[in-house]
Nucleic acid binder design. Structure first.
Length: 213
DNA sequence: CTCCAGGACAAGC
DNA sequence: GCTTGTCATGGA
């Protein structure tokens, strides 16, 4: 059933080319900045950076300078701290994804989760989009879309993720990459909080429009 | 004006 | 254990 959803979304919207970032560390910055924040505001923040998107460069900034650059993305006090913690952690691996990839994925995930400000969604998005490991990223959009489809949605993040991954049984990173990106696009396009069910490509699979009539 | 956006955390029960 | 308040900006 989930793979059908994926197929329908891909046929409707096409490849999404995620994550929109020039370096792995820019992706990680975006993952922090987009926490409970619209991507347009994150783009405004990223556009103000006058340094390369690398951990060494970010750590050289004063707190005030970093805060001023990320201000449009909101929560700038906590996010500036979180960015520096993440940069320090990444530097332990020389800011090099190929070194990260030599470690067991579960170890790296636990390390990410131990950082203040990195919860399960942020960790998994980094695991997938920066390190290219096959983790399904659960977000609020996933919960909304899947529950409207009638798919069981556990409250617990980890239980939900593992259920989806077991259900899909399709462990390629590029698949998870595309699926999550399509979910985000679809949530903005049709499956908004106030649903726009007219012409929704998932109508045949979704029980939500049936409930309206 | 209110509500929302690609969450995480700590305090309170 | 689970629920609630907090963090902040910009756009609809």
């Amino acid at each position: 059933m989930l793979f059908q959803v994926y197929q329908q979304l891909f046929d409707s919207y096409g490849p999404q080319n995620w994550w929109p970032a020039k370096t792995p560390f820019e992706m990680m910055i975006g993952a922090i900045l987009t926490q409970n924040t619209s991507w347009t505001n994150v783009e405004k923040a990223l556009a103000q950076f006058e340094i390369p998107f690398e951990p060494q460069a970010l750590l050289k900034l004063s707190n005030q300078e970093l805060i001023d650059w990320i201000r449009p993305s909101g929560f700038f006090n906590q996010k500036s701290e979180r960015l520096k913690l993440l940069a320090q952690w990444f530097l332990q691996y020389d800011g090099d994804v190929t070194i990260i990839q030599q470690h067991p994925a579960e170890d790296i995930r636990k390390a990410l989760l131990s950082l203040k400000g990195v919860g399960p969604e942020t960790a998994d998005s980094i695991m997938l989009y920066a390190f290219e490991w096959p983790f399904f990223v659960v977000d609020a959009y996933t919960r909304r879309i899947f529950s409207r489809l009638g798919y069981p949605v556990p409250k617990d993040y980890e239980a939900f993720r593992l259920q989806i991954e077991a259900d899909l049984n399709r462990p390629s990173p590029s698949f998870y990459n595309e699926f999550h990106a399509l979910i985000v696009y679809h949530a903005k396009e049709h499956c908004t909080k106030k649903p726009k069910c007219a012409f929704c490509p998932l109508t045949a699979l979704c029980q939500y429009p049936l409930q309206i009539a």
